[in-house]
Structure formats: C-alpha cells, structure tokens
Design a protein around this nucleic acid. Structure first.
Lengths: 228, 228
DNA sequence: AACACTATTTATCATATGATAAACAAGAAT
DNA sequence: ATTCTTGTTTATCATATGATAAATAGTGTT
C-alpha cells in the first residue's frame, strides 16, 4: 500500500481555507448569518450547520461566543434593538395631519421593518420559547404606538380625553385589532408560507381607512359622547 | 461493604408501576399528552420527557408509534381534523340575517376553537417547520369563509356579484385583515405571552362592527358602484 | 394452578451535538 | 529571515437522544 502524499502543494489545491478576518468583521459575519440561519431552521439548528454556511469550522464559533445560547441572545438583541425608530411615536402625535394620514405614514415604514423573513421568524421562534423578548416588544408597541393612537383618535373625534376617561382594555383591544389586521400579513407569508399580497402599501392603507371609518362609531359607544 | 438488598417486597414499595391499559386507551392518552407537550415545548421536545409526563417509559411510545415523526404527524392530524365545523360556511351564507350577525355567530364559535394554548402553539410549531399543514388550513379559511364572505358582502351592499366582477387579491386581503384582527388575539396570548383581552366576544363583535362600517366604503371603491 | 398472550419495562446501541484542548498558520514586528 | 501573536483548524470528549431487543409482569383462558 503506497501512501500517496496528497498534500504537496496546499496552496495550489482547492482550499481557500483560513481566511483570517479581523475579529470585529468575523463576529459581524457570524451574527448576520446566524440571524438568517436561525430564522430559517429555528434555534435548534446545529452549530455545525451554521459553521458550514459561514465556511468556518464549528469550534471557531466558540471563540466569538461563549455558548450557543450566547449567540442566540445576540441574535435577539440584534433584531430587537437596531430596528425600532423612536420617531414613530412623534409621527403618530403630529397633529398637522389627520390621524389616518399619520397611520399611513407610520405603517408604510413599520411594515417592511417587521414583515420580512428574518424578523418574523426570529420573533416567532422567540415566542415559542418562553423568553420575555416578545412581551417587551409588544409593550413598546402598546405604549409608544397604540395608546398614543387612542389619545389622538379621541382628540380628532372631539371625545373626552384619555385623562378624563381612561382607555379601557376593551378600547385598546380595538387598536390591537388594527395592528393585527396589518401585521397578520407577515404571519401568513413567513410563518404559514402563503403567497404575498399584492401592493402591501395600498392594502394597508385600505385597512387603515376601514378602521378609521368604523372606530368613530365604536369608540364613541365605549367612551360616551360626553364633552371634551 | 454490605450490599443491602433493597428489593425484597417490590409490591409493598412505592411503585404503582405497570398500569397496563388497553391499547386504544393508551394510544389516546399518548396523543392527548403529546399535543399538550409539543404545544408547550415544541416538536424538538424529547420523547423521554413526554414519557415521563405520561408515567410510562420511553420505549413504550415506540410500541404505539413507529417513530417520533409518526407521533408528530398524528398530533397534526388530531388538531387539523376534528376541529373544523363544516356548518360554518352555511352560517356565513345564511341570508336570513345581516352579514354582521352571521360573522358574529361564526366567530363566537371559531374563536374558542383556535384561540387556545394547544391549537395556537401547535399551529405555529407547524409553521416554523416547512410543512404544508398551514397552507392547507389557510386554504380552508380562504375558500370556505373569506371568499364566501366577499360574495355575501357584495350582495348585501347591492354591488356587482363576484361572478360579474371577480374578487381581486386586494379585495380579499381586506377580509384577511378582518380575520387577522380577530385571531391576532390568540397570537398575542399564546405565542407572545401577553395577558388576555377581557370579554373576547364583545371585543370581537366590535371589531366586526368596525370592519362592516368601513368595508362598505372600501369595497365600493374597489368594485365600482356598477349595478348588480 | 398452570399457561398463553401481550403490555410494559430494563438494558443498550448508534448517532448527533454542544463544547474544549491542542496544534497549526497567516500576518505583523523585530 | 526569524519570532511572536492570535485567528483558525483538527481531534476529541461528554452527554443527549431516537430507536431496538430482550426480559418482565399483568390479565384472561383452560
């Protein structure tokens, strides 16, 4: 048995291995791919498979993250931070235009922020585990968007202010209904795997119009038509 | 080292083991617990943990199901079949009452059917894997409920029939919006883990009222006010 | 009471998978 | 060119986990 030495010219062989990136760069690369990877296969995806996609070896991941959970946590953070625009609340409160127009402006930017493969699937992966991640995010939506919206609708309709007549859970639920009617699109697309709706902006705007037409009647019922 | 024999009276010990059920009964028991278990921890939950909850040993599962995947498939089936009431479509088509009333009747029964811990979580677990399960279910909702609803709304508003002016994707999306605004409740509760809305029936009915008030305007825009 | 049938358990295997230690090598400093 | 630093790989471990085979025991039959 002659042992042929196959490794005479490691440079000329088909091995573009050992890329040796700067730590910062490599770390970012790992996180970016981890988001896509875990979004696709779930957090039970294997570190070996992730490494393969990155063209690195599996132990290298542990040079950058102490444990797999550490990497997962980093993925959460990346999605959770970096993607909330603090101006959104200001847009809702901007009384220079009607509430409907403000909503359209908001959802035109918000929709693509969250209705996309990675965001949706990571968010639901998080929900299937019992992390407080989702609760924290929904709290943001409730306090910075929906409760603000309640107040603005009351104002626009000349109804009692939220200070006078506090927002009841039932009233708030109606606004969650609006929100749900819009983001449910993303769930259908990226969780259920159905085909995309055409013209998301136009459809979303129509949903907003439907909501605004109906909320006038319903919120008046809930709040009473007392003077402002 | 004295080896004390601890197993003199196996009967009198604390072992209520070996329950020996009839196969049918045991199988049902396994499926029922598997639904709860997989709903809670996901389909990556371990067979040993499931067995522990059932107070049986792990290999016994393999007497009743050939593989873990076989058990998972059974769980899908159990949720998918048994829980769709074929009468729902008839309810939507029942022209003896206004569309709004029909919708309220439908969602009063549909809501608790799907907005519960097991259904919601199993359905989303399925979505995170790439099974056609969800697509099949949504097809049911689209064809048996929403498209029927489109036709009924057209009729009630004296607009051109769906035969004359076909339902456009954009028009259908609005009905998905209604559906989403209602079932989003379940997602918030059981996937995101937020607190439940009070009075789900009243809130759902209000959402239906909002939708019906707004859809009149929007659907007329889309369809045109041509004669019936 | 002895036997047969089979539901259930015990013991075990093979592989998958997160994690670690040591060897290797690319680029900078001398 | 030699040495040093450290990013990267190779080799390996420990445990988890789906699955199987054989032993055990509950229940009905004769």
């Amino acid at each position: 048995m002659t042992k042929v030495d196959k490794r005479k010219k490691p440079k000329a062989e088909t091995s573009p291995k050992r890329s040796r990136l700067l730590p910062d760069e490599r770390e970012k690369q790992i996180v970016a791919e981890a988001i896509r990877f875990f979004a696709e296969v779930g957090f039970d995806g294997q570190t070996r498979e992730l490494a393969k996609r990155l063209n690195i070896t599996q132990p290298l991941l542990y040079r950058y993250f102490p444990t797999k959970q550490g990497l997962v946590d980093r993925v959460y953070k990346e999605i959770y931070l970096n993607r909330w625009n603090p101006e959104w609340q200001d847009w809702i409160e901007d009384r220079s235009t009607p509430v409907a127009a403000r909503l359209k402006r908001f959802y035109t930017e918000y929709y693509p922020t969250i209705v996309n493969h990675d965001w949706m699937r990571i968010f639901f992966q998080a929900g299937m585990r019992n992390v407080g991640f989702n609760q924290r995010y929904l709290k943001l939506v409730r306090e910075r968007i929906l409760l603000v919206l309640c107040a603005e609708v009351r104002h626009e309709l000349d109804l009692p202010s939220v200070a006078t007549v506090p927002v009841s859970p039932a009233e708030l639920e109606l606004y969650w209904g609006l929100h749900g009617s819009i983001v449910y699109d993303g769930i259908r697309q990226y969780i259920y795997g159905t085909t995309v709706p055409p013209e998301p902006v136009a459809v979303t705007n129509a949903k907003i119009d439907i909501f605004m037409a109906g909320i006038k009647i319903e919120v008046a019922k809930l709040v009473g038509k007392g003077q402002k």
